[in-house]
């Protein structure tokens, strides 16, 4: 044991942490992910849009997470927005919708090459106090180091225990189309 051993030993874990962090630091994010939903029935078309959702994607593991404030969804009609928050999604009690998932074939995404990748995303969507598994196809478009992710899928309103009174059941679709669009930039650079 000599006197240099201690600094060397100290350096080792540090180097290791740095290495691990570098390896995992290929993260991408946005605070302006757009989420839209569309309810389409013969009587009424309803849509709402949220343009301030958070999204983080970890290129090293393929994990992707979204978070959207329910109150951030905007409707053309003020009363619909009020009812959406008060009666349907109960945003005071359940303020956020959160998706945590995994991109299956994430390894083929190379941020250095401008290409479009079609990928599969699966994970859990938590909304209105209910968690449901969701699987959807998404397109990841690599452009100049940024990733543009788009996806479209359907969710069943009843799955999330959103009650629709019989009086308006013909005006609100049982399955709502959800569109997601997020332009992700590298995190921490």
């Amino acid at each position: 044991m000599n006197k240099y051993l201690f600094p060397r030993l100290f350096f080792l874990p540090l180097a290791c942490i740095v290495f691990v962090n570098v390896a995992c630091s290929q993260k991408y994010f946005t605070k302006n992910a757009q989420i839209g939903f569309f309810s389409d029935t013969p009587i009424e078309k309803i849509e709402a849009h949220n343009t301030t959702s958070n999204c983080v994607f970890d290129l090293a593991t393929g994990r992707i997470e979204f978070s959207a404030l329910i109150k951030g969804f905007q409707f053309e009609r003020a009363l619909m927005q009020e009812h959406f928050n008060e009666n349907y999604l109960e945003s005071d009690q359940f303020p956020k919708a959160i998706f945590k998932g995994q991109i299956d074939n994430y390894r083929k995404i190379d941020p250095a090459k401008n290409t479009k990748h079609i990928v599969r995303v699966s994970g859990e969507l938590n909304m209105h106090g209910v968690s449901r598994s969701i699987t959807a196809q998404a397109v990841i478009d690599v452009k100049d180091g940024n990733l543009k992710a788009t996806s479209e899928f359907q969710i069943a309103v009843a799955d999330f225990q959103v009650e629709i009174p019989s009086l308006v059941k013909d005006q609100i679709a049982k399955n709502v189309k959800v569109k997601v669009e997020a332009t992700l930039k590298p995190l921490g650079k």
Binding site: N21, C24, K27, R63, S67
Partner: peptide, 15 residues
């Protein structure tokens, strides 16, 4: 360090 990064990606963003 690895584990923390796996757990919650969203916490990386300041709200």
């Amino acid at each position: 360090s690895l584990k923390a990064q796996q757990d919650d990606l969203l916490s990386l963003l300041e709200e």
